[in-house]
């Protein structure tokens, strides 16, 4: 009973701000609402016993991705007092895209056989670590290689031009590397 109540509260914490993210006219408000949604998702992970995934969710999405989203939004020129341009030319492609994604997700969710585990909830960290360096060592190393390549790419894109190429030195932007690192 209490467990159901906790689930409902977490689901509301995820969904209500998510609606605000989608429909808010102020893009910074939308970004900050995303904070509650991401925390709600972390709460759902913890509720399902995936403690490592829950903390990683907070670390990566709240501490890394969301900070970068807000950073980008605040540093970008926003027309008309923080309100994005809106009209039918924006609405129709967005609606088509959103419905497409929804259909895909719905199809996947209904197609998967969801098995509920019966056993007691146990800490998962040690097992995840062991699996990373045994059964899944190749995907794990491959992902780190991809991230390294992306990081080097970002460093090349933002590097200071040589004097003969341009007069103004480009400003270093360490945030870009951070995105890759997190």
């Amino acid at each position: 009973m209490t467990a159901d109540l906790i689930f409902v509260l977490l689901a509301l914490l995820t969904l209500v701000p998510a609606v605000w993210v989608a429909f808010s006219r102020n893009i910074v408000h939308a970004g900050f609402s995303l904070l509650l949604t991401l925390l709600g998702v972390a709460g759902l992970y913890a509720y399902l016993g995936a403690d490592f995934v829950a903390v990683t969710q907070v670390m990566v999405y709240v501490g890394g991705v969301l900070v970068l989203i807000l950073f980008t939004v605040m540093m970008t020129r926003v027309p008309q007092n923080g309100r994005p341009r809106h009209g039918l030319d924006r609405f129709v492609p967005a609606a088509v895209f959103a419905l497409g994604v929804f259909g895909l997700l719905y199809k996947t969710i209904t197609a998967v056989e969801w098995a509920a585990s019966e056993g007691a909830v146990e800490p998962t960290t040690a097992e995840i670590g062991t699996n990373f360096i045994t059964s899944y060592i190749f995907p794990f190393e491959y992902v780190s290689l991809v991230l390294l390549a992306a990081m080097i790419g970002a460093a090349i894109l933002i590097r200071e031009r040589r004097p003969e190429e341009t007069e103004e030195p480009a400003a270093p932007a360490p945030e870009t590397e951070e995105e890759v690192a997190s």
Binding site: V28, F32, L35, D51, F52, V55, T56, V58, M59, V62, G63, G64, L66, V67, L70, F71, M74, P123, T125
Partner: peptide, 25 residues
């Protein structure tokens, strides 16, 4: 008494960054 206490500490302190961004904005 969390199994991943140290990781948890560093994860939740990232809320401080968001609070500072929110205050400034």
């Amino acid at each position: 008494d969390l199994d991943l206490g140290l990781f948890y500490i560093f994860a939740v302190t990232s809320l401080v960054v968001l609070g500072i961004l929110m205050a400034g904005w």
